[in-house]
Amino acid sequence: MSTPYYVSPDQIWEDKKVFVDRGIEQAKEVVVLEYNNGLLMVAENPRRTIFKISEIYDRIALASTGRVSEYEALRVAGIREAEVKGYTYYREDVTGKWLTNLYSQHMSAIAQGWDVKPLEIELLVCEVDSNPETRSQIYKITFDGTYEESEKFAVIGGRADAITEKLNETFTDGLELADALQLASRAFESIEVDESEPYEITPHTIEVSCLDATSGRRKFRRFSVEEIAEIFNHAS
């Protein structure tokens, strides 16, 4: 009889982490930050139909990075669950925390499976409230289902730490939309290390959306290239 092989859980978990980190390292970043009317979401993404940021439900948006096929499936499943819940009960009952738990449970189950690879994605569930007094919520979810609630801003993607560091220095409360976009763009530019060729963010290289707490039932809005250019013009 052959001896059953043994691998320590530490080793398995470590391997999975290394595997995911390798994937995420190459993932483009998405920045979500508070501005005076809600949340602004900016991604480095020159593509015009494959998005990193999308609407889930009235007050909720999802920013994601990593493997497109993996986060796309979660995006669609999230919309489906949110619509069924909102239809069954009441639209206000669909919350960011509920959606975050749903994603977290799913990602954690996959990460613990012995015969499946963990998801190479990171997610930000973003939520604003109709009441301007209530702070907006940002939940960052990583591959193993752990999530944390972020204040003011959050970043996902390969160089998230560097951008977070930059935002720690530059972020201020109550930014206008244009200034918030400017701030996010500067943060993106600051992490490009190749100094021989200065890197510049233009309306064509980024994807910009916002959750505007002051607008009607559907708070999500995606900006076109022309609109992004227009916003840049208003930055002080």
Binding site: A73, L74, V76, A77, G78, R80, E81, L102, Y103, Q105, H106
Partner: peptide, 9 residues
């Protein structure tokens, strides 16, 4: 509850 494998309609 989340069934992302069923990409759906």
């Amino acid at each position: 509850m989340l069934k992302p494998h069923d990409y759906g309609t």
